[in-house]
């Protein structure tokens, strides 16, 4: 219903009840000019949306009109202020950033924390007196600390260059064979559930031995090279896996602002916030649980088929796929 129809409806209603403009002005205190503008749908003569909405609502309630119809019409006539173009552009930019680093950001934050921790540990080790003599003891103790955060990208990269320059080439080679088994078993373990991702597995395992072979021959230099190789590989396996085993995809289009949380089967929960007009596609492997904060404000399609959501605006809903 647009303003013209609403104005027409109110006029009819007023004529039915037999009230004159003066009586309505007396009861609502809305000026005659504004009342006429409402009935004749002269939008540019009406005051700002907040006031106009209030006037129409007051007027309708004096006439005893059905408030649900009026409220619905008002929501259409005066959409939320946030819908202005630059606001949307801004929100979209925010969302893009948010989505891009939704998972990456968390990893990155964890990485930064670990990097700080590790550098603190190293700083303490470096400051210990008589480091040279204790080199043999210090090395193994540092090694597990470094290799423990297997998924973190930064800590290792930083840890290695810090340790190496202090050591003469010979002691540096000594810890390396110790370290090698650490990254090496990881790809092997992954090759057992090879059925899942047969293509990727050879990739990480192949460069690892080759680097391992090269490492003893060279001095400190290869250390940083050796690190990134196995690390990038597990990362790529992890990211490719959900794409390979994709069983379905859910697309959500928001009509109103809506918060939602997606919990893929066996995975960790991810949160999103959609503004009106935003679109979000979530792929999942086995199952997906979707919690939405505003069930009435979104429309959902599952594998291209629309899903019916039985919820009012503002109602929290949990949807399970498939």
């Amino acid at each position: 219903m647009d303003l013209r129809e609403l104005g027409e409806m109110l006029r009819q209603r007023r004529e039915e009840t037999g009230l004159t403009f003066d009586e309505i002005v007396e009861r609502t205190k809305i000026s005659r000019r504004n009342l006429q503008s409402i009935e004749e749908a002269r939008r540019d003569e009406l005051p700002h949306a907040v006031y106009s909405k209030g006037f129409i609502r007051n007027y309708a309630s004096v006439l005893g009109a059905d408030m649900r119809v009026v409220n619905k019409a008002l929501a259409e006539i005066f959409p939320e202020e946030e819908d202005s173009e630059d606001a949307i552009a801004e929100v979209q930019r925010d969302l893009r950033l948010h989505r891009a680093d939704g998972r990456g950001m968390r990893l990155f934050k964890a990485g930064v924390l670990l990097a700080l921790l590790v550098s603190a540990v190293i700083a303490v080790i470096l400051m210990l007196p008589g480091r040279k003599e204790r080199g043999a003891n210090g090395q193994p103790s540092a090694a597990p600390a470094v290799s423990a955060p297997a998924e973190a990208v930064r800590p290792k990269g930083e840890a290695k260059p810090a340790e190496k320059p202090l050591e003469t080439p010979k002691p540096a080679e000594a810890p390396k064979p110790e370290e090698k088994p650490v990254p090496a078993p990881a790809p092997e373990e992954q090759s057992k559930p090879a059925a899942q991702a047969p293509v990727q597995v050879p990739a990480p395992s192949a460069p690892a031995p080759s680097v391992a072979a090269a490492a003893p021959a060279e001095t400190a230099a290869p250390a940083p090279v050796q690190e990134p190789a196995p690390k990038i590989a597990p990362g790529s396996v992890e990211q490719a896996a959900p794409a390979l085993a994709k069983a379905g995809s859910v697309q959500i289009v928001a009509k109103e602002a809506c918060w939602l949380e997606a919990v893929p089967g066996g995975g960790e929960a991810q949160e999103f916030f959609l503004r009106p007009g935003e679109k979000l596609t979530i792929d999942y492997a086995s199952s997906l649980e979707l919690r939405v904060g505003n069930g009435g404000g979104i429309s959902v399609t599952h594998n291209g088929k629309p899903v019916k959501i039985d919820a009012r605006s503002g109602e929290v809903k949990t949807l399970t796929f498939p």
Partner: peptide, 13 residues
């Protein structure tokens, strides 16, 4: 307030 001030009163949503 409408009666006392003779002004239109709007309650926000």
């Amino acid at each position: 307030l409408r009666e006392e001030t003779h002004l239109p009163i709007v309650v926000v949503e």
